[in-house]
Simulated assay, not measured.
Amino acid sequence: MQPTLLILAAGMASRYGSLKQIQKFGPSGETIIDYSIYDAINAGFGKIVFIIRENFAAEFKEIFEPKLKGRVETDYVFQEMDAYIGDHQIPAERTKPWGTAHAILCAKNAINEPFAVINADDFYGTDAFVKAAEFLKNGCKPDVYSVIGYELGKTISEHGSVSRGVCEVNAAGNLAAINERTKIYKENDQIVYEDADGGKHPLDANTPVSMNFWAFDPSVFQLSQDLFNEFLDKNISNPKSEFFIPIVADEFIRRDKGLVKVIPTSSKWFGVTYKEDAPGVQASLNQLVANGEYPDNLWK
Rank of each mutant, 00 (worst) to 15 (best):
P208H: 04
V166W: 04
S28R: 03
A57H: 10
K234H: 12
N170S: 12
V209N: 00
Y84P: 06
G11Y: 07
V72T: 10
I148S: 00
F78C: 01
G11E: 12
A103T: 14
I32A: 05
I118W: 00
F221S: 01
G125Q: 10
I22K: 07
I37V: 04
D233S: 14
P3R: 07
I184R: 04
P208S: 05
E59H: 09
V262Y: 00
I63P: 07
G70M: 06
D256S: 13
K61W: 13
K24H: 09
I51G: 05
N206H: 11
V130R: 15
E158G: 15
G198H: 05
S18P: 13
A171K: 14
P264L: 05
V262A: 07
L105C: 12
I41M: 06
K261A: 13
L152G: 11
K96G: 15
T95G: 11
G86V: 01
H102E: 02
V166M: 04
C167L: 15
Y16I: 15
G198A: 07
F228W: 00
K69Y: 11
D197C: 01
V209L: 02
L298D: 11
V260N: 02
A132F: 05
G139L: 11
A205V: 10
F60D: 03
E251P: 11
A101H: 07
N235V: 01
P264G: 00
M12H: 04
Q79M: 04
H201A: 02
K257C: 12
G153A: 06
R71Y: 09
I41C: 03
S28F: 00
K20W: 08
Y294C: 01
F231T: 04
D87W: 06
I111A: 09
Y38A: 01
V281D: 00
A283Y: 03
D226N: 00
K108N: 15
I156G: 06
F45R: 06
T126W: 08
K300T: 15
D197Q: 09
L285W: 12
V117N: 08
G153T: 06
R181E: 05
A133K: 10
F123M: 10
F244V: 13
T155Q: 06
G160T: 02
L203A: 03
D189I: 06
A132L: 12
R71T: 02
C140N: 07
A58L: 09
Q287E: 14
E276C: 08
D233L: 12
D34T: 06
P295L: 04
E293Y: 03
S224Q: 06
L19H: 08
L152M: 04
D127T: 12
P239F: 00
N291M: 11
D233R: 14
F25W: 02
F135L: 13
I85S: 05
E187L: 10
P27M: 00
F25K: 10
L203C: 08
R15D: 09
D127N: 14
E242I: 15
G125H: 08
A278M: 03
N188V: 11
I51T: 14
F56W: 11
I7Q: 08
R53K: 13
Y185P: 10
D204P: 07
T31P: 12
V169F: 01
N297P: 12
S28G: 13
T100W: 01
M211L: 11
Q89F: 02
A107P: 14
E293M: 06
Y76M: 04
S266E: 14
S14V: 05
C167Y: 03
A92E: 12
K61Q: 15
I156L: 08
R255H: 12
G149T: 03
E276Y: 01
